[in-house]
Design a protein around this nucleic acid. Sequence first.
DNA 1: GAAATAGTGTCTTTTAGACAATATCAC
DNA 2: GTGATATTGTCTAAAAGACACTATTTC
Lengths: 239, 239
Amino acid sequence: MTYNPEIYNDQRPNVGVTIVPFIYDEQVIKTLVYKRPIDAEQFANTHALPNCFYDRKKFKTTDEAAKHALLVKTNISIPYMEQLHTFSGDHIDPNRINTINITYFALLRKSDILNISEKNFVSEWMDVDKLLKKDNFAFNHHEVLSLAWNRICSKAEYTPIATQLLDEKFTIVEFKALTELLMNTKLNNSRFRDRVEKSELLIPCSGEFENRKTRPAQLYTVNPHIKDFFYPRSMTKAT
Amino acid sequence: MTYNPEIYNDQRPNVGVTIVPFIYDEQVIKTLVYKRPIDAEQFANTHALPNCFYDRKKFKTTDEAAKHALLVKTNISIPYMEQLHTFSGDHIDPNRINTINITYFALLRKSDILNISEKNFVSEWMDVDKLLKKDNFAFNHHEVLSLAWNRICSKAEYTPIATQLLDEKFTIVEFKALTELLMNTKLNNSRFRDRVEKSELLIPCSGEFENRKTRPAQLYTVNPHIKDFFYPRSMTKAT
DNA sequence: GAAATAGTGTCTTTTAGACAATATCAC
DNA sequence: GTGATATTGTCTAAAAGACACTATTTC
């Protein structure tokens, strides 16, 4: 029963991490993809999401590896990150059939992104809508993007996750428009405001308004005391 | 850029899977744990959840490995299984700091469990309540159990997941009692029945009733046409 | 009939949904 | 004032919640 570190070596999978970063820019959601070199051994000239191998010498946890995969392609802090799913199977990497892919998504603020260009590769923030229609992704990155997109859209319905994509200060109108985009439906105005009020999720930045050429809108910021908030579900409790 | 399979070998983690199986038995939820041998190299004489290494030679996917980890300890089919989370970090296995744990939970029917005893180890279905209070689990299995328990309890509120723990035919009273157990609250009788009716989740087994010494209760079965059902959330859609 | 549990109905309160009305800015 | 958008209010419909009532069995 003594542990021999060599025993399992040839059975150990390649473990990689992939992260799907989202930003809200010009009324659409975008994600960061980079183009693989034309002379790449596999998936040449196709799009891929930020990813790297999980190397225990470099990273204590896969979360750290995922952050690294994103940070070398941006240079920003990550306000919100969540593990998505772990994929396994031969389809992930045809050249390395023993591969596991631990996936994450992240929500970033456009204003936090200072410089997304790097010398080593060409990366680009592209419309999620358009990317989902493409089928020539590297690895299993289409299913990863698709799952990430479904997750964030679902969560927009019962959590205030969309606020993570907005600037620090934002108006209710902006919050509503983004939620509508994610939910792919129009929402009732009064109800949306009532919900925000009752939940105490947002606190008004007193005296601060956004000025366009119309009536100024109150600016709000996320209430830091409220963590892991879920909007009330309609469930039937008894006294 | 040519791939050399040896390059990453000493960086590759041990990948293990853990599965938390639940049954509903005698009005409580139980999970299967086995006791590690007294002479085990590590975590001797402590409880552990069903687990095994992920060996690509044996399993094409980690899902298959998770099923295997459970099946060698039971000998049943697995009606419902879901991936939970992938853990990494030094705390999982002190003897193998480069370890990753891909975790699952499963929902079983007590009636499907024919023979849970095996010769190679002692396993036992124990109250989840009691297990959660113990702190001497092997590996990170306490956090795995805790996460699994939270997940199933949350899902009982907005999905009919609890039906997976009941026999094929069950009464609404049984379904309600189990949901109350998971949600840790009493539920409104009429509302619960209305919800079941409207959702068309259950179909009555016509003419079949459960007979106790009181008024017989209608038996229902899960509508096979309804997949991935979520109870309606209160969200504010506009026309 | 009594006891026990299954299932239904009724009333009140709360929330959702539609949409009108008012408010505040630039010009 | 007009135009544009923000914000509030009002009315109606639907759902939740509390709880009483009726139904069907065994004894």
